[in-house]
Simulated scan of single mutants.
Amino acid sequence: MSINTIRAAFAHCAFTGLSRNHLGLLLTDLLPAWTAAREDRLHARRTRTRIRKPGAGRRPRLSFTDRVVITLVHLRLAIPHAALAVAYGVDRATVTRAVTQIRPLLARRGFATPAGTRLHTLADVFAYAAAEGVTLRIDATEIRVRRPRQGRPGRKAFVSGKLKQNTIKTTLAADHHGAILWCGATRPGRMHDVTTARVEGVDALLDAYPSVKVLVDAGYQGLARDHHDQVSAPPLKLRPGAPTEQQAAWEHDRKRQSSQRIAVEHAIAELKWWRVLQRFTGRRELLPETINAIAGLVSDRSAGLTW
């Protein structure tokens, strides 16, 4: 099989998770940043004045398009670097270097919105929600990671009280259509959902934007108690033996709030379609960058910028 056939196959949406038009827009968006980063790397290696003309020298084994496609295939299907290296006829270290170069560029793109702007921080999300009248849906999800080695400090911090496994938790903000507006506050799985949001500064943002409304699940009851005019959480459970009418009213309110908040659950599910986030086997410190890279790609499609 020729290398051109392999390149055409891997560029298909079945491998990258992106349509042909989306991939073309992504390449156009990343090329200036990748070129600037490459020039910075070359400049850092030089110990004397350049002798060759710019662009001269040995050609790289992988083109810019190859590097982007390889990174997308790895994120989408979790294909090992060694397997991708065999397909492209290069060394495994070459594939690892390509992924290391492209993944930060994807993570720094931010999150697309239907208005055409890109959001990068939680403060940007609240400003956007206040300007556009968007009711935010906030929820956290956990991703399984490898257990830290015995004897290392903070080993128990990754043990999730809910899943009883070693996880890392990240928080998402979505709109009523399920479009991802922000993804961050990545913390060890033992930290509570509401604590991760408070550490990220959600209390100050709620005070700064009193017109913004937020829908959350039962894990954010404390946030709803402190900001009862802005944050809506499911009603508290009734005591055993409550009257039938009260139980029916409680069930109705719970289902109504859940149906309004379900959009963020759909956003989390779309994020987990990418195999590398179903169970992350890489280095734990690389997971926040990986999550942001994938969430930015998912937000492009949710915002309707890929067709």
Results as ranks from 00 to 15, higher is better:
6 I>E: 07
6 I>D: 14
7 R>T: 02
10 F>D: 00
12 H>I: 02
18 L>P: 03
26 L>N: 02
26 L>T: 12
27 L>Q: 11
33 A>N: 14
33 A>I: 06
38 R>P: 04
39 E>M: 11
42 L>N: 13
49 T>L: 12
50 R>F: 06
55 G>V: 00
56 A>M: 07
60 P>G: 07
66 D>C: 03
69 V>S: 06
77 L>Q: 13
79 I>Q: 15
81 H>R: 12
84 L>H: 01
87 A>S: 06
91 D>Y: 10
94 T>Q: 06
100 T>W: 13
102 I>R: 01
103 R>Y: 05
104 P>L: 01
104 P>R: 02
106 L>E: 03
111 F>T: 03
111 F>L: 15
112 A>Y: 13
113 T>Y: 02
116 G>D: 02
121 T>G: 01
122 L>W: 03
123 A>R: 06
125 V>Q: 02
128 Y>P: 03
129 A>M: 11
132 E>S: 14
134 V>H: 06
137 R>M: 04
141 T>E: 03
143 I>F: 02
144 R>E: 14
151 G>Y: 04
152 R>L: 11
161 G>K: 05
162 K>V: 04
167 T>I: 06
173 A>H: 05
187 R>E: 09
187 R>K: 09
190 R>K: 09
190 R>M: 13
195 T>F: 05
196 T>N: 13
198 R>G: 00
199 V>C: 09
209 Y>E: 06
211 S>K: 15
214 V>M: 02
216 V>G: 01
218 A>L: 13
219 G>P: 03
219 G>Y: 10
220 Y>N: 08
222 G>F: 07
224 A>S: 00
224 A>R: 00
227 H>E: 04
227 H>A: 02
231 V>R: 00
231 V>H: 02
233 A>M: 00
233 A>F: 00
233 A>E: 03
234 P>G: 15
235 P>L: 09
237 K>C: 09
237 K>T: 11
239 R>C: 08
241 G>M: 14
245 E>P: 05
246 Q>Y: 08
246 Q>C: 05
246 Q>K: 13
247 Q>S: 06
254 R>D: 08
254 R>L: 10
256 R>S: 08
261 R>C: 01
263 A>M: 09
272 K>Q: 11
272 K>T: 05
272 K>F: 14
275 R>K: 08
275 R>N: 12
277 L>W: 02
281 T>G: 15
290 T>M: 07
291 I>E: 04
291 I>N: 04
293 A>G: 04
294 I>S: 04
299 S>Y: 03
301 R>K: 13
301 R>E: 15
302 S>Q: 10
303 A>R: 10
306 T>K: 05
